[in-house]
Amino acid sequence: MIELEALTKRFGAKTAVDNLSFQVKPGVVTGFLGPNGAGKSTTMRMMLDLDNPTSGTVRIDGKHYRDLSEPLKHIGALLDAKAMHGGRSAYNNLLCLAQSNRIPASRVGEVLDLVGLTAVAKKKSKGFSLGMGQRLGIAAALLGDPEILMFDEPVNGLDPEGILWIRNLMKGLAGEGRTVFVSSHLMSEMALTADHLIVIGQGKLLADMSMAEFIHQNSRSFVRLRSPQQEQLKDLLHAEGIAAAALPDSGALEVDGVASEQLGELAARHGIVLHELSPQRASLEEAFMRMTADSVEYQAHAPGAPAAGVGGQAGPADAPAWGAGAEATSKGGR
């Protein structure tokens, strides 16, 4: 169990993590989601007592990290795959970690085997590919057989097979009753792995809910209609009290909250020809983007648009949001 209480981190004038409070519970995979620069890595570094919080606290099983006597036996983390000495072999990199926490040397071979690096155990880690480095970092996290595991963007640089492997690994670890906390900026990835979601944007908590709840709240379903008699169709819907949004370029209409059958029958009764009648479901990725839209920091700008704010230090106020104009999002879902 990890508990954050009003955790805040400022770098100079910039607030990277803003008053975060949440708990990460055992037995499930908790996804930690946020766009680039949202503060995920900073939060994780504070959890491991690497960065000093400006204020607030983190507790691991009720204790401060620094007070854990052999921390690798409580919590294992993959932060940055390259956080090893490249001139040392994979085996020796893990051996010095194991020794510091009195983990038997035999465990080093076990975890190397587990991540599939046995064949290169004696090779210097600087020659490793991104994926191999990631696996070595995961091996380091598993070294102390800890009850809590933390992975910062573990699928980075992994091939599809590797991604599948780590997904199953995380689910397996959670299935054994461990606490698994994994960050990502890809909702689609989280949808496949996480049971619980914590979403942050610009360091602030945006949502803390189960995956199922998130899907329920955020996956908007609607029906798309196209007709050569669009004006008539619009009038008809209006007369029936059904709200329809016209899409600017395609000439299609989108209707929320009315079943496609009902719409089809309605059009037929009034003799309106339909070229399209299709139920749609907004992806979770879109839901995530809507949720974090006004807190996205590193935003792409259309070429030719004023460059203000590109590259980061711009505050939220002058950053034009993608979802601007979209109706209220379920911000602050708890």
Binding site: R45, L48, D49, L50, Y65, R66, L68, P71, L72, A77, L79, D80, K82, A83, M84, H85, G86, G87, L97, S100, N101, A140
Partner: peptide, 18 residues
């Protein structure tokens, strides 16, 4: 210095936080 240049320092301090 190599602790810092390689990023190993984070791994090291996570293992020995004192």
């Amino acid at each position: 210095g190599t602790e810092y240049s390689t990023g190993m320092i984070r791994t090291s301090l996570a293992a020995v936080p004192r």
